[in-house]
Nucleic acid binder design. Structure first.
Lengths: 194, 194, 194, 194
DNA sequence: CATGAATGAGAGTTCATTCAT
DNA sequence: GATGAATGAACTCTCATTCAT
């Protein structure tokens, strides 16, 4: 595939992303994507064979960028607590966003697939987030900003709460207050004084 | 559309439930259900007009039974801690079950729908569970079996963790140890000694 | 078939008539009639086997009554011209009525069927009307109220104009003025002074 | 829906025309047309969305051609009376034709539709025919070939007679003699000597 | 590479007709 | 007689996928 192709491929993925944001994963058809991209029906097949393949690529792009964003926010110099707060704030924003989010599509995708554990991006991101939080907490404990008995357990617990909030936000609706209250609960458990 | 044979209606709903367990919500077709029920194409339409309608009925049955189960387990005489343990054990079983669970279908259904907050069964069940856990904890605190500063907050937090575990189980896979570890973490936070 | 049946049969035909008035002939289904009658699906088949059969019966009733009406209006004592006027007035009313008329259904029915000439009610009515008009004109000529060279030809011509007006009313729309103008044209041709 | 192949579009319309000739308008299905055209089920939908749309296009073609034919026959040099005769002869042929005529379908179509007066092709053709006949008669009167008091009224009357003959031909059957007699009646009224 | 017409499988839906009760 | 549940054929419409250009 030449250079031009790479560009078009990118364009398709970006456009398809919008479709997935709009309709989730399961009900998206090749036709939907063709129409969104305004390309020819056959043209799409030159690049991808199925919505599954397209979604996987969309997901790959998504997570690559996500990693960038993450490391970006961490590079800033700040106290450990600040970083943790920043991270949680970021999660909150993501959580509450109803537009432009792939969340539902991602869940639907993983409902459908028997993805080998190792290749499961959702899992990889979850585990990586746990590790980061754990390190943040450990750093905070060291500096005596935070209190924590079982840093790994706490980190994991936080992530499960965030997952719980995320799915709740998508299925039952969750207000900003609810999220704030949960975050406060978590921080309080860490001996964090606002 | 009258009630026709209540028995057949029931049969259809039970059979459709299996289909939803198998395929989730979004990709289930009337044809899938017709075939699973081994009834005629037109026959299904005597009872229901759409998969949406069928799913809602399946859901109603499901939650009615769920309520029964819940109150059933509470009737037993036991210490507060035991009841809480029992409840969490129940949740764990439910969580880890990959067969015969409507979880994915329910999530997909609520992804799709703009359900008014008050009619959102998922939400109602969540809120009701929070209240029950809260009462259990309060009872435990009174009997000095448990320790807790903010019972309502803790109850809600527990439920979000459970939600997080549930969606994680469906999308990234979660082992029994992971669930146990999480439950232990929660119980530990309540000053519960195993 | 007992008495009760005859009554129900009548009821079905009267109700079916409304359906044919509403939808024409070709697109009426047995279901339409069942629903309009509020009887059971199977019940209708005890009386009739098809919409075709039902329509034929409706038509029979219709024309029987029509004959009555016709002879009724003729019984009055009046000058020949008055009777002719009365007849044309009646036709005009019928022509312009868009509600409660079987006209379209009848046309559709005869489009569909290869009805033997002798059994064709439309034709029988047409011919009978021609004869009546002819006699009226002849009577008028005798009394020197009217002028006419070829009474049969004129009578037939009048009927074709009326048919033309009728179909035009159903397909292109025809105003009262248009009908009046035509009737005046006809009467003028007969030397009729208003 | 683009224009796709104009040729195939044309082919579909021509084939569909035959179907409408055969079955009228109301009972024609997309399937009928698909089968007549021997194209694929989905293929037809690339060109048209409904039988209604197809019929409208068929009708458009039909009337365009009709206009051509009409102006064609008028271009010939001939006495006014000859042209009128020619026109009526044409109508007669059309009237008596039981094959290859859209007449029934057109009537059924207009039964079904609430077509705005201005867009009603049937009406437009009727009105246009009235004007043409009127002009022919006027020309004939001028040349003293014909006699006529109210040329417009007569023209309209002729058209209603023709309409009456047309619908009679489709519903009760009309012999050639009947038509001839009627035409003779009309011509006689115009002082036309055969 | 790219297009878009064409195909045919498959899902939705309606209804005539039958039949057990 | 009467009911209405049940069946299955027939239609509508959509879309994944292919292929000639």
């Amino acid at each position: 595939m030449g250079e031009k192709s790479a560009q078009k491929r990118k364009f398709i993925l970006e456009t398809a992303r919008k479709v997935f944001v709009e309709k989730g994963y399961k009900l998206v058809t090749m036709k939907d994507i063709v129409e969104a991209c305004q390309i020819s029906r056959g043209g799409l097949y030159l690049y991808f064979d199925s919505t599954r393949e397209i979604f996987q690529e969309v997901l790959r792009l998504e997570t690559e960028e996500a990693d960038d964003v993450f490391s970006g926010s961490i590079k800033k110099d700040a106290t450990t607590g600040d970083i943790l707060l920043l991270f949680l704030e970021e999660q909150k924003k993501e959580l509450l966003r109803r537009e432009n989010t792939l969340t539902q599509a991602i869940y639907e995708f993983y409902f459908d697939q028997e993805v080998p554990r190792k290749e499961n991006i959702l899992r990889k991101q979850f585990d990586s987030a746990v590790r980061i939080i754990q390190r943040l907490i450990e750093a905070g404990v060291e500096k005596e900003e935070l209190y924590c008995e079982d840093c790994e357990g706490t980190a994991r617990n936080i992530m499960f709460v965030l997952e719980g909030l995320k799915i709740a936000a998508q299925t039952m609706g969750v207000t900003e207050e609810t999220v704030d209250r949960e975050l406060r609960y978590i921080l309080h458990g860490l001996g964090f004084e606002e």
